[in-house]
Design a protein around this nucleic acid. Sequence first.
DNA 1: CCCCACCGTACCGGTCAACGGAACGAGGCG
DNA 2: CGCCTCGTTCCGTTGACCGGTACGGTGGGG
Lengths: 253, 253
Amino acid sequence: MPERSETLNSVARAVEVLNLFGRAPGTLGVTEIAMELGLAKAVVHRILQAFRAKGYVELDATTHRYRLGPGAVVLGLSYLDSLDVRTVARDALRGLCAATNETATLSIRFGDNRVYVDQVNPARDVQTVVQLGRPFPLHAGASSRAFLAFLSEDEQKRYLSQSLEQVTDNTLVDPSAVRAELRAIRAAGFAKSIGESDPGTVAAAAPVFDRQGEVTAVMSVCGPRERFHDQLDAAGAHLRQKARETSRRLGYR
Amino acid sequence: MPERSETLNSVARAVEVLNLFGRAPGTLGVTEIAMELGLAKAVVHRILQAFRAKGYVELDATTHRYRLGPGAVVLGLSYLDSLDVRTVARDALRGLCAATNETATLSIRFGDNRVYVDQVNPARDVQTVVQLGRPFPLHAGASSRAFLAFLSEDEQKRYLSQSLEQVTDNTLVDPSAVRAELRAIRAAGFAKSIGESDPGTVAAAAPVFDRQGEVTAVMSVCGPRERFHDQLDAAGAHLRQKARETSRRLGYR
DNA sequence: CCCCACCGTACCGGTCAACGGAACGAGGCG
DNA sequence: CGCCTCGTTCCGTTGACCGGTACGGTGGGG
């Protein structure tokens, strides 16, 4: 039963290498990558050469280590341009930022992770700034759990059956605790979290659905713990409202 | 003499597919891609499956056409984070924007193209907004020619020997005209252009050099033709200054 | 200062996975 | 309703990739 692959695994391996660069910032060495992915050094080297020839990775001539190249940005920003939920949600983000005077964000799902793809920041001295493009696991933080809560039962089960990474001291990692939280999210229509992806930050988040009824995105409002903690529920109400509007504009009924 | 490739051409082909998505916004079909790249449909299909499994492309279930997926954004933004010229140049861009009251941009090279990776916009009603991540050929516009002017003689020659794309009506496409312009750029220390990548926009641009003396980036200021045209030389002086400072901060002597 | 250990890179032959021509089924348009 | 075109699947052959191995360079520790 060799599990009919239906996919080019040379390409699959190559993509794994790219993923590694996406996850770990900075530079990577051939051996390091080979160890991490369980590949032969020669294979990794060839893959890197291929990407290098196309401008997707660069070779640091002095250290002989590799980093991402300019090709990556062309892809990434081209994707952001074609992402219609982003343009549709932009007004809602602005509205949320204005209403709460805190940072409003938009995230999308990427496999078992979620990434920020947009943010609108308030014009004040102290503000939360999120890092666009950095992946977070689906159980840590309000935005993440807003995804998880509205996935199918099967997917939730599968996700929660693996070991859950402890991103910060506050991250929920006990499966049954997460499950309880997911129920609460579905009941309230929005999610809350306190310092689970960044220790000093609290957030509320609500899901955005597409025409097919899937969670395509999550909107959130986040701010510094001291001043924003007591306003999470108020922000949650706003969020639920704006997220619903956005879902409608995407064709959700 | 099959020209020792030293690279995985399955991966090379796969990357070509990605490049196509980066260039053409919107969706692509299997046959379309196969035609464009001269590959068999089956091959393209397998490549797309591989990328799809990893979240780098998505399949539109109704039209059966493909588009970029969330993986792209992780890569792209992760690259932007690791791009130190971007953080180093940020202050200079802000300064340029403040001094000219127009949009200041930063571009990097990507093979025979150049892409915007950052911009700072002035707070006024009418302003130029550039499209981050979209590739432009190296001969069209001020930022592009600021790269070309400081590449090696060989590279300039090679680039100018191919046919030059006419991006707008104003784009310089005659090789000897471009060559003359490049000489003028080297003499003045900055480049100018009038509506070559966007008809209504004029720009000035200056190169940023790294430790090795290569052009790693180009800074530009651009604005609407009517009001900014007469100030290009003044902006050019500012640019030369700020670009030099930025080069120093990168270790250039 | 020398040596060693490890890194990135190059080599090469056997093998198995990818290639690609062709056939299939499903939409869409006229 | 029938044709055309698209995406997808099938399958036998082959040549490109795998990976064990060997090499040169670099940096750190003794």
